[in-house]
Design a protein around this nucleic acid. Structure first.
Lengths: 119, 119
DNA sequence: CAGAATCCCCTCAGATACTG
DNA sequence: CAGTATCTGAGGGGATTCTG
């Protein structure tokens, strides 16, 4: 399986729909932390199922940690970027520089992670 | 469409199955050039249909140029990395460093683009 | 609030066969 | 050699409903 190559795997991993956007939202949050509901409302159009699945994947791969506060009801869930999560943001910044320079598909982009954004 | 974000688009673009592997094969070739049949035999398991489709996409987005030599029969087709193609390889190197450090899914990887490879 | 469970659609990629 | 055409299956993601 050539699919098994490390770089390829990583790229395919973060390219799953919504994954990169979730990472960027966490990066923007204070302490690189966001609640489930915050992510849900930031990421227009995402479904709970997908958000939940992506977060679970990210936790599993160590890019994000999860903390549940059940002192209150309903319980709150907070998700935070880990060290590896922060480091992959740096790689993504490099990718962003490339994409702004070369404009895949000449897309005019007006949303969060472009010229004016955090990256 | 949050999908429209530049970085996200770029990542999803090169994460299509085989795309990254094709770029790496071209990078390894002399003058960053490879023939269709060479790519076909290097990339074990790829079908002509998919190889053809990916190359067409890469040419369209300007990462690769195509040159046809029809002075002979059958005609030969050569594909070469462009400047933007070469630059994205550099970004991919950054991604590779990350993936070797953090090992997505703890995959043991023995193939071309890992520790011993060109990247 | 933060999910889990179903159902459904639809794209992507593989297999195969054909052509200039 | 370098593709194109057609068919098919698997899986990813959307919509909706239910629960601790």
């Amino acid at each position: 399986m050539q699919d098994g190559c490390t770089v390829n795997l990583t790229v395919r991993y973060i390219a799953r729909k919504w994954t990169l956007l979730i990472l960027l939202e966490l990066y923007k949050g204070g302490d690189h932390t966001r609640r489930f509901s915050e992510l849900k409302s930031c990421l227009t159009g995402i479904t709970q199922k997908v958000l939940s699945a992506r977060l679970k994947e990210l936790v599993k791969e160590g890019l994000v940690t999860k903390r549940v506060d059940d002192s209150t009801f309903p319980a709150k869930s907070e998700y935070t970027l880990t060290e590896s999560g922060l480091e992959i943001i740096e790689v993504i910044k490099g990718m962003k520089r490339w994409s702004l320079k070369w404009k895949i598909a000449n897309i005019e982009c007006g949303c969060q992670d472009c010229s004016q954004c955090v990256l």
